[in-house]
Design a protein around this nucleic acid. Structure first.
Length: 868
RNA sequence: GCGGGCGUGGUGGAACCGGUAGACACAACAGACUUAAAAUCUGUCGGGCGAAUGCCCUUGCGGGUUCGAGUCCCGCCGCCCGCACCA
């Protein structure tokens, strides 16, 4: 690695000395301490929050980018006079700690707390404007104990329930596997073929809020549209009909009315050619008991795993169950019943009817098993003879045909008519179904929040009384044997029943870590109170004004948090009538880096390779190296860059500046050494501007170059401010560059008023840079006689009069091609502009031998002359 | 498979509501300074044609709407994110 710092320090800006100095000053002055609502007085509040990190042990560049962005927003609001809350905490429960315990014999708690210590130490030199007084870690009893209170309150309010659900079971490790731990149907550690097991599990009733969560999206006008769309699709509200297909004869017990299905397309009912049940539908399972073929099919389907992705990607398979139902509209029409591996038991009633001409998946299935395909929807403009379905279904609107009483209707009318007939026949009704499922929160793991209930043979499931909370984890889990350490702990789970005092056992499931992150933002409003959330402080601070994190959380974390605020509202634990925790959301892109592979295909760290004579070689061996793709930084691909090392080499300002330059915040940014060096040069340049700043003014910059410079300063203030407001930090950076270039040039100028203009420019620049690269900004501010800390100086405001000029330059097009520029006064009329444009000699070269047909003048923008 | 997004010079990107495509930066090249190098400063920098004022082409690909399309519409291609037990 090339180091640019070193022997030439004297005249240069030395980040290694300057940055700790300002960090100490900020700490002494307490500028980052949050003010209470009383202390804040009339100042408006701004709650700025970045998604809190998992304490993996090392800060990575993705963190630096995320927190640098949040810091821009926080410092900017501080400068604008807001009372800012900008806290930090740790999403500290989760599987990596247990993996460390299993692989290295470390205690998950110790491992996690050590990681927190070392990451906090890495945070410090970044110079973020965080209020560490409000730090929290979800793995500490003072946090998860309160979470247990929330759980119990939700239980009392009917928002928690138990039901059976499927899990991926590793028969060797005796453990439940996460979907990511199931690789090709096998456990990642044991390699054993994964089984499906049904366990009685705890659920949060998120579906109770399905409509509210959907409706609420309309109020989130400071969220990216893509996230709102993804959440709406995830909730997946669909209107249609739920109805029964009566059995031809001898219905299985419990299904006397027939097989219940949900469909959004009852208009295609006359195209039905089969019924398909989920592999784990009750009827399928009943039949499997004395039919080995069906049992094999179920086992085969189970091997795919529980993830919807895997199920939908798997080849479509089915088995004929040998049952027959009759068509709701024609009792003489028999339809076969199949089981199919693509039918989800968790959606609707776990059964569908196949209408192959109008649904691609049904069509593929029908072709595979040679089931009838009858088209029933005629696309607009087609007639029955030439509308043939081969291997592509028609899913669009049209006119119904081949469909008895529905013939001739539009698809929408036919939907209503079909539902009306189903009601008449007493077989079903219109209904609404959601894709959203209730949230399963049980985890059979040690390192999570214990679910605060006990089981008593006499009293059943009994909540732990609040005065006995928190239910803490035992300190001595044993990870040497397979299975859940809580379940086989020698003493922990044995307790007495709070109700009858008899022997009882504790619940050994812990909560999904998504629960921990579903309310931490509310806890930050007051981390001292005994209630989970202080009602008054939360009323003041919530909603979070700006939340920043990765898009990968677009659905789950953000939807769960929106559910939690509603659930807590229903329990009286929070006062947030809107139910919306995050008023503004920004999703930032990843940090990527080039990758390298050796001849043998092993990943190589960028530090181990170098370019010799234009080709890449391994430094140690000199062997040639394959340059791989630019990918998200990850340990496995060895393309990470350690922020701590970058800060040592170049300083925090450089790391932050680079993360905010060039790439738009929502897009991925590629870390490059040369980019970091560019940022370093810029920091040096800023300092040299301040160092060369004149000590005194030389009169008012009211004309000539000095006035032009002042105008540019105002333009820059305007542009940088807009860039921050709109989360387009890269454009702010570009404008800061332009002003710096202008100020550098101005060092050569002797124009009257220039010294005044330069002093003004450099101090303004320091203010504009402060949210991005705060240390060098403070240094420049101090060197140019700024009052106090730049972080506390009022954000500059552009003078609107300085943003407009007297004349404007307009491009002139002829037939849409630019041919000339004209300069006109800012208040020129359309007629004036037309005349000037037509008189222009460059324009006339293209118009002289033609007829002018039309002239389009867009004020302040462009002139287009249409000739022909 | 389903849902969502993205695609502009050698590179990252800019272009506000459909109005000058390539701001700003990185890299590269040339020059100044220097015994030399580094640093710094200055200049060139999408492609083609031309002696030249210039002209033509160019925003992943193919169509369309418009006086005018990177931007809007339709159809493709490629990459990325999510898919409910990773966080």
């Amino acid at each position: 690695m090339r180091l640019l710092t070193g022997n030439i320090m004297a005249t240069r800006y030395n980040a290694q000395e300057v940055e700790p100095k300002w960090q100490a000053r900020w700490a002494e002055s307490g500028v980052f301490k949050t003010k209470s609502p009383q202390e804040a007085g009339d100042a408006p509040k701004a709650y700025v929050l970045e998604m809190f990190p998992y304490p993996s042990g090392r800060l990575h560049m993705g963190h630096v980018r995320n927190y640098a962005m949040g810091d821009v927003v926080a410092r900017y609001h501080k400068a604008k006079g807001y009372n800012v809350l900008h806290p930090m905490g740790w999403d500290a429960f989760g599987m990596p700690a247990e993996n460390a315990a299993m692989e290295r014999g470390e205690h998950p708690g110790r491992w996690t707390r050590e990681n927190i210590e070392s990451m906090r130490a890495q945070f410090e030199p970044l110079g973020l404007s965080l209020d560490w007084d409000r730090e929290l870690a979800t793995c500490e009893p003072d946090y998860y104990g309160l979470q247990q209170k929330i759980f119990l309150s939700m239980l009392r309010n009917g928002l928690v329930f138990r039901k059976k659900s499927k899990v991926n079971w590793d028969p060797v490790d005796h453990t439940v596997l996460a979907n990511e731990q199931v690789i090709d149907g096998k456990g990642w550690r044991s390699g054993a073929v994964v089984e499906q097991r049904e366990l009685e599990q705890w659920f949060f009733r998120i579906t109770q809020f399905a409509d509210e969560l959907l409706e609420g999206l309309n109020t989130l006008d400071r969220w990216p549209d893509k996230v709102r769309i993804m959440q709406a699709n995830w909730i997946g509200k669909s209107k249609g009909a739920t109805f029964h297909w009566p059995f031809k004869s001898n219905a299985p017990s419990g299904f006397e009315k027939g097989i219940e299905v949900f469909t959004t397309r009852p208009d295609t009912l006359f195209g039905a050619s089969f019924i398909a049940l989920a592999p784990d539908h009750e009827i399928t399972r009943e039949l499997a008991k004395d039919n080995p073929a069906i049992a094999d099919f179920i086992a085969e389907a189970a091997r795919i795993g529980t993830s919807e992705e895997a199920i939908e990607k798997a080849p479509k398979l089915g088995v004929d169950l040998g049952l027959k139902v009759t068509h709701p509209f024609d009792p003489t029409w028999e339809i076969p019943v199949w089981a199919a591996n693509f039918v989800l038991s968790t959606y609707g009633s776990g059964a569908v009817f196949g209408s192959p001409a109008g649904d691609q998946r049904d069509l593929d299935f029908a072709r595979k098993y040679d089931l009838p395909v009858k088209p029933v929807v005629l696309p607009p403009g087609k007639n029955a003879e030439d509308h043939v379905i081969t291997d592509e279904a028609y899913t669009g609107p049209g006119t119904i045909y081949n469909s008895g009483f529905l013939d001739g209707m539009s698809t929408t009318d036919a939907i209503d008519a079909a539902i009306a007939r189903l009601v008449e026949l007493n077989l079903g009704d219109a209904s609404t179904t959601y894709r959203l499922r209730d949230w399963g929160v049980s985890r059979q793991r040690y390192w999570g929040c214990p679910i605060p209930v006990v089981r008593c043979d006499k009293c059943g499931v009994v909540p732990v009384p609040e005065d006995q909370l928190p239910v803490t984890l035992p300190d001595d889990p044993d990870f040497s044997k397979p299975g859940n350490p809580l379940d086989r702990h020698p003493t922990w789970k044995f307790t007495t029943c709070p109700t009858c005092g008899g022997d009882a056992t504790r619940e050994t499931d812990t909560l999904d870590t998504f629960v921990d992150s579903s309310w931490y933002f509310a806890r930050f409003c007051n981390t001292q109170t005994n209630a989970p959330v202080d009602l008054n402080d939360a009323r003041y601070w919530l909603p979070v004004d700006q939340y920043i994190g990765g898009v990968e959380h677009a659905v789950l974390h953000l939807l769960y948090s929106r559910f939690f605020t509603r659930a807590m509202q229903a329990c009286g634990l929070i006062d947030l009538p809107s139910g919306e925790p995050f008023a503004g959301l920004f999703t930032q892109g990843m940090v990527t880096h080039e990758t390298f592979k050796s001849e043998s295909g092993a990943w190589l760290s960028p530090e181990d390779v170098e370019q010799r004579d234009g080709s890449w070689v391994e430094i140690a061996t000199g062997k040639p190296v394959k340059v791989g793709a630019i990918e998200k930084m990850s340990k496995s691909k060895k393309n990470t860059v350690d922020p701590t090392q970058i800060i040592k080499d170049y300083g925090a300002d450089v790391a932050r500046w680079f993360m905010l330059s060039d790439s738009p915040p929502e897009r991925d940014v590629e870390w490059t050494q040369s980019g970091a060096e560019g940022a370093w040069r810029f920091v040096q340049k800023l300092w040299s501007l301040a160092d060369a700043a004149p000590d005194n003014d030389d009169g008012s910059p009211s004309e000539g170059d000095a006035l032009e410079l002042v105008r540019q300063i105002h333009k820059t203030v305007d542009g940088v401010t807009r860039g921050i407001d709109e989360f387009r930090f890269n454009t702010s950076v570009a404008q800061i560059h332009e002003l710096s270039n202008a100020l550098k040039k101005a060092e050569q100028s002797k124009a009257p008023g220039m010294m005044t203009a330069r002093r003004f420019g450099i101090r303004t620049l320091a203010q504009l840079v402060a949210p991005f690269a705060p240390h060098v900004a403070e240094e420049c501010w101090e060197a140019t006689g700024g009052d106090g800390l730049v972080i506390e100086a009022n954000w500059p405001v552009a003078d609107p009069e300085m943003l407009v000029s007297d004349t404007i330059t307009l491009p002139v097009q002829v037939n849409g091609k630019k041919r000339s520029d004209i300069t006109v006064s800012a208040d020129a009329t359309k007629d004036d502009i037309e005349a000037i444009a037509l008189a222009d000699t460059d324009v006339q070269r293209f118009t002289s031998d033609k007829t002018v047909r039309k002239i389009i003048v867009v004020p302040g923008r462009i002139v287009n002359i249409v000739v022909g």
